[in-house]
Structure formats: C-alpha cells, structure tokens
Simulated assay, not measured.
Amino acid sequence: MLKIMRADSSQVFRRGPFQVRRNRPGLVLGSNVDVAFGPLSVIDHANLGPGTVVRMHEHNNDEILSYMWRGTMIHEDSAGHRIPISAHKLMMMNAGRSFWHEESTPDGPVEMLQIFIRPREADLPGDVQFFDRPDNIMDGRWHLVAGPQASDAPLKIRQQVTVYDANLRAGDEIALPTVQGLSPWVYVMDGIVTIGTETLAKGDAVTDLHQPLPTLRAKGPTTLVGFLVDRTAPATQAGTISGR
C-alpha cells in the first residue's frame, strides 16, 4: 500500500536569505517515536539566497550528501578544501568523529538537499568526497549518486543506503530499482508526477513497504531523488543532525 508524505507536513525554518524545509522521512509511516526511515534520518530542502554564509561549524557522526539542484555553493572545510559544488559536482561529507565546514553562496541563489544519514557506528574517521557528474543526465533514467562502501556508487556512504536521481520530461515514465530487503523512498525535488491514482508535487514523498513502487509518470519537467534503504541496518544515533 502506498504511503505518502506531503510537503506541508514538514517544518520550515527561515533566517534572512536562508530557508530550510526539514523532512523527517519516517513520518511517511505515521510514527512519532523515531521519525527516521531506518538510517535515513533527515532531508533538508534548502533555498539559499545570494550572499548567504553558514559559518564554519562542526558535525559529528553524520553522513551528509549535498545534492545540488540549482546554483553553485562554495564549500570550505577542515580538510583544507575550498570548492564550488553544483548540479555537476556533488559532495558527500562523512563527518565521523569530527568534521568542520562552511557554506556560502556569493554569486546567486541555490536550491539543494542536504541528506543526513546515520552511519553504521560512531566515531569513524572524518572524510569528504566529491563527484564530477557528466553532462548527459537529462535522459529520463535513474542515475546512481551514492551508496554503500562495497557498491559501485561514485559517492560512498558508511551505511546500507543507496541514492539515485532522475530528470524527466513530460510523459516520461520510470520505476525505482528494487532490491530484496531494501525499502524504497522517493522524493519529488521539483515538478509533478502521478503514481497509481495519486499525484505528487514538489516536496512530496512516497514509499511502499510491501511491494515495489508503481511506475511514476511525469506531468512536466521533473526531478526525482530515490532511495533504497535497509531499515534494519545497525546505525548510531550519535549524529549532530541524524541522531534521534
């Protein structure tokens, strides 16, 4: 049975040119005990206006995927990087026992997801990874973005979570890959899709714990972010953001 989480169920935080819609993926299941979807804990849908600066700050025990959809953000960190990230250069921070970073948007607005995942254990070494994406990603197919360390994913997550995205045109149809033992969770980054008899718009999410998700059909230009999650995987709750 489809379970849907609507965008208006999310918390919204604003500070000047910085706005975040905080999604708790487990709310799609109706739980108020722990609002994570297994180790998939928090998805912040962020809009940063020009001139936004999020000063240097520390994370502990968060696996953080910065999924850029629009614009360019300057990332600086305790490992000495100062790198622009965009839709063609994604980033994974494996915070571990400690990792510091700063974000700024000096040149224009940014829209992105910051995806917080609980790592398999606390106090792993801190690290950061970058992924230069090809230009031909507007093709109506799922593209592998991040996944477990043993996978072929370009960005490695120290957890049993796999992340895909897809850019669709009006009329395109797509079904999320299925893997035995993994639960699907799909987020509408932008656009409108139909799934079964339901319509999902920007900021909505859907899962089904008992059978594969039906095909999604785009009603216009649409970006989807899909997850396959082992909801039973061991995970620490010591994260700065991803922890309970």
Results as ranks from 00 to 15, higher is better:
residue 161 V to K: 08
residue 168 L to H: 10
residue 238 A to Q: 13
residue 119 P to S: 08
residue 91 M to K: 13
residue 223 T to P: 00
residue 103 E to R: 03
residue 166 A to D: 11
residue 228 L to R: 09
residue 31 S to G: 05
residue 158 R to W: 13
residue 132 D to S: 14
residue 193 V to R: 04
residue 38 G to T: 09
residue 39 P to L: 05
residue 3 K to Q: 15
residue 13 F to Q: 14
residue 82 R to W: 00
residue 231 R to P: 02
residue 94 N to M: 12
residue 76 E to P: 00
residue 60 N to W: 00
residue 222 T to H: 06
residue 224 L to V: 10
residue 232 T to I: 04
residue 26 G to I: 06
residue 20 V to L: 14
residue 29 L to Y: 01
residue 219 K to P: 00
residue 153 A to Q: 09
residue 49 G to S: 10
residue 182 L to G: 02
residue 218 A to W: 08
residue 225 V to M: 14
residue 147 G to V: 07
residue 58 E to P: 12
residue 58 E to N: 11
residue 105 T to L: 03
residue 98 S to V: 09
residue 59 H to R: 10
residue 100 W to I: 01
residue 37 F to G: 08
residue 3 K to A: 12
residue 202 K to Y: 01
residue 124 L to H: 09
residue 60 N to P: 00
residue 80 G to Y: 11
residue 235 A to I: 08
residue 238 A to H: 10
residue 170 A to V: 03
residue 137 I to L: 15
residue 236 T to G: 03
residue 217 R to W: 00
residue 32 N to W: 00
residue 196 G to H: 06
residue 224 L to R: 08
residue 119 P to E: 12
residue 132 D to L: 11
residue 105 T to N: 13
residue 3 K to W: 01
residue 79 A to C: 05
residue 50 P to S: 11
residue 1 M to S: 12
residue 100 W to T: 06
residue 214 P to K: 03
residue 228 L to S: 08
residue 76 E to Y: 02
residue 153 A to M: 10
residue 149 Q to M: 10
residue 212 P to F: 04
residue 208 D to W: 05
residue 177 P to A: 07
residue 55 R to I: 05
residue 137 I to P: 00
residue 77 D to P: 07
residue 216 L to E: 04
residue 40 L to V: 09
residue 17 P to I: 02
residue 182 L to R: 12
residue 70 R to V: 10
residue 14 R to C: 05
residue 217 R to A: 13
residue 71 G to P: 06
residue 14 R to G: 03
residue 205 A to W: 01
residue 189 M to Y: 05
residue 124 L to N: 05
residue 208 D to V: 07
residue 19 Q to F: 00
residue 13 F to T: 12
residue 116 F to C: 05
residue 98 S to T: 13
residue 9 S to F: 01
residue 244 R to K: 12
residue 117 I to P: 09
residue 21 R to F: 01
residue 22 R to K: 14
residue 203 G to Y: 07
residue 193 V to I: 15
residue 142 W to R: 03
residue 241 I to Y: 07
residue 12 V to A: 06
residue 49 G to H: 08
residue 1 M to R: 06
residue 2 L to C: 03
residue 186 V to S: 04
residue 236 T to K: 09
residue 75 H to G: 07
residue 238 A to P: 00
residue 201 A to Q: 11
residue 136 N to H: 14
residue 149 Q to G: 03
residue 68 M to E: 13
residue 241 I to T: 13
residue 240 T to P: 05
residue 181 G to Y: 01
residue 146 A to F: 10
residue 53 V to R: 10
residue 168 L to R: 09
residue 193 V to E: 07
residue 56 M to L: 14
residue 109 P to C: 08
residue 55 R to E: 14
residue 125 P to A: 14
residue 230 D to S: 08
residue 223 T to G: 01
residue 24 R to P: 00
residue 104 S to V: 06
residue 157 I to W: 04
residue 187 Y to Q: 12
residue 234 P to M: 07
residue 207 T to V: 08
residue 5 M to G: 13
residue 228 L to W: 05
residue 227 F to N: 06
residue 170 A to R: 14
residue 26 G to F: 05
residue 51 G to M: 09
residue 178 T to R: 13
residue 155 L to H: 11
residue 57 H to Y: 11
residue 236 T to D: 02
residue 160 Q to N: 14
residue 109 P to F: 06
residue 237 Q to H: 10
residue 244 R to G: 11
residue 220 G to M: 14
residue 90 L to N: 11
residue 92 M to P: 04
residue 201 A to D: 09
residue 210 H to R: 08
residue 41 S to N: 04
